[in-house]
Simulated assay, not measured.
Amino acid sequence: MSSTGAPAPNSTEWHDYLAENIGGTELIVIWTFTGLALIFASARWYVRGWMQHKLWSDDYLIAISVATGITACALTSVSVAKGVGRHVEALTNEQRVTATLWVYAAYCPSVLSFGMPKLAVIALLVRLLIPGRIHFWVLWTMGALVQLALIGVVASAMGLLFGRCRPIHYALDRENVARCLDTVTWMHYCLFAASFSAFVDFYLAAYPSIVLYSLQMSRRKKVILSVALGLGAV
């Protein structure tokens, strides 16, 4: 929902402006990538579960991640149906409040869908590369901390909005939400959480390459395995 660059009301461009809607494009993008993730995950589960008759902890973590992604897409679809993707001026105040409520509902599973795959990658790397005791705890501690950081993004927003907004419906009103939420501080925290998440991704991508480099195997195998495990981390 946006009001940036709005033409003058009742001008020749006004009706076209009100009719603009990018919600459909948003849905195509998120459902496409979520569908691809589901296809690849299903292929993995088929090989592991049906052919090898063995599912590991990373397979279950991937299932949770895919489930959160699908949930986020479903809730986002509802928010688009309620008006997300259209300009603010095209919605009534009640429609704005309803659309914002569904955006909040989609926020939590959306954020979790970014964090859960990291735990799956850590479980895979621990099983394949067998790190030392200290490094084992370093990996899992990083995974836990990044989950807490991402959950904190959602918890802080919900707590500040619904805990401080009086009357509470201001939390769902785009024009009044700034009264409840210190957006500058919150954005700084979001930047920290995103940076930490990116650092963990980089670490999980680089770690297999460092370990494989010291093993006695051909350079071709090292490159192939490093790329495969590195892409899995990303």
Results as ranks from 00 to 15, higher is better:
129 L>M: 12
49 G>K: 01
115 G>K: 02
231 L>Q: 07
163 G>P: 03
83 G>V: 02
128 L>K: 10
141 T>L: 04
122 I>Q: 00
11 S>P: 08
59 D>W: 02
94 E>L: 05
167 P>A: 01
48 R>H: 10
114 F>W: 13
182 D>W: 04
175 E>F: 13
30 I>H: 13
21 N>C: 06
199 F>L: 11
22 I>G: 12
135 H>W: 15
128 L>N: 09
52 Q>M: 13
226 S>V: 00
78 V>Q: 12
221 K>L: 12
56 W>Q: 11
234 V>P: 04
172 L>T: 08
36 L>T: 01
170 Y>N: 13
223 V>A: 13
171 A>R: 05
160 L>V: 05
151 I>A: 15
142 M>S: 10
31 W>I: 01
25 T>W: 10
167 P>E: 04
110 S>I: 09
59 D>M: 02
23 G>F: 01
24 G>W: 14
197 S>C: 07
36 L>N: 00
205 A>Y: 01
96 R>S: 11
36 L>I: 06
32 T>S: 15
89 E>V: 00
28 I>P: 01
86 R>K: 15
186 W>P: 00
176 N>T: 10
133 R>K: 15
58 D>R: 03
13 E>N: 14
221 K>W: 13
92 T>Y: 06
93 N>S: 10
207 Y>A: 02
228 A>M: 04
47 V>L: 00
213 Y>Q: 06
51 M>F: 05
57 S>A: 15
99 A>W: 04
92 T>D: 06
233 A>V: 01
205 A>P: 02
101 L>F: 12
151 I>G: 05
55 L>I: 05
43 A>R: 10
32 T>L: 15
95 Q>K: 10
232 G>F: 00
194 A>N: 15
79 S>L: 11
84 V>T: 15
164 R>K: 13
34 T>G: 09
29 V>R: 10
112 L>P: 02
198 A>N: 12
198 A>W: 13
212 L>Y: 09
56 W>E: 12
144 A>R: 05
135 H>E: 15
210 I>V: 11
228 A>C: 00
72 A>V: 04
158 M>F: 15
98 T>A: 14
152 G>R: 07
71 T>I: 07
60 Y>T: 03
125 L>M: 02
112 L>T: 04
102 W>N: 06
103 V>G: 08
57 S>N: 13
43 A>Y: 10
52 Q>Y: 05
79 S>W: 09
193 A>Y: 05
107 Y>L: 13
63 A>K: 06
113 S>Q: 09
118 K>N: 02
73 C>L: 04
39 I>A: 07
18 L>E: 09
21 N>A: 09
218 S>W: 06
98 T>V: 10
161 L>T: 14
48 R>S: 09
123 A>N: 12
143 G>M: 03
110 S>R: 12
41 A>F: 11
122 I>E: 00
195 S>T: 10
69 G>D: 08
224 I>K: 07
219 R>W: 12
207 Y>E: 05
156 S>I: 02
88 V>F: 12
